[in-house]
Design a protein around this nucleic acid. Structure first.
Lengths: 118, 118
DNA sequence: ATAATACATGAACATATATTCATATATAGG
DNA sequence: CCTATATATGAATATATGTTCATGTATTAT
């Protein structure tokens, strides 16, 4: 893939250190991290997550809240579910969603801190 | 957009509270948050950010490190730059990149905590 | 001035993604 | 059983995104 791999590698002050870097994050972790952030990288899903950070909601209410079709929301919820960002609870024909754990709140807080601070 | 908006909104226990939710995060903030996470939602960029979290690197070294073309890396760095995730410093014909601030480290830590814990 | 190197960028292309539409499943009520 | 409601999902489509290729710009050396 790298076309000019051996041209400027001389500039690495500490070649070993950089070589170690390659392995310090496992490939699978890189993929899963990217998936996680990508799942949060959509306006609709941000709105959903933010709403759920305040209170548990059923699908239909989320749809009303973000003013989108039930189908669109269901598709998005599937993504959020698959990454364990949200969990759900069935009650009759309703399905109530909520955030899966506190990490998401923290991710939110850090993200907001970044965009607000510069 | 919402086709069945007025069908189940009855289920909102506290309609006012939900109505407030709509405005508690500004639209522009939602967009910027989504942009930020989307910028982190790619394996190549995760690798770049992780590398830069360890040490300042020039473009060519990053390319060698992640085994991709200089052009591909430049394009990705432009994205990271535009979201202020990285900053750069010119020194002759070299350009050295580093993380822009500490929020990114924290976002990383939270992301890792999430994917590792379940 | 010419050549070489480091980096940036526009266009093209292939793939990924979000929404819509139609339809399926499940539950509740008559 | 039949109908209505809440949710899920497959297919289709339009748009976004990542990489490559070709080329441009800036800097250094000869």
């Amino acid at each position: 893939m790298a076309t000019d791999k051996d041209m400027c590698e001389i500039h690495l002050i500490n070649k070993e250190k950089v070589e170690n870097l390659k392995n310090s994050l496992e490939d699978e972790e890189i993929l899963r991290l990217a998936e996680l952030y990508r799942a949060m990288g959509d306006g609709t899903r941000i709105k959903i997550l933010h709403a759920l950070s305040q209170e548990e909601l059923c699908v239909c209410d989320i749809a009303a809240l973000v003013d989108m079709s039930q189908s669109a929301i269901s598709h998005q919820l599937r993504i959020l579910r698959s990454l364990r960002l949200v969990k759900y609870r069935k009650e009759g024909k309703m399905v109530y969603y909520s955030l899966d754990d506190e990490h998401i709140i923290n991710l939110f807080a850090q993200g907001l801190a970044h965009i607000r601070h510069n």
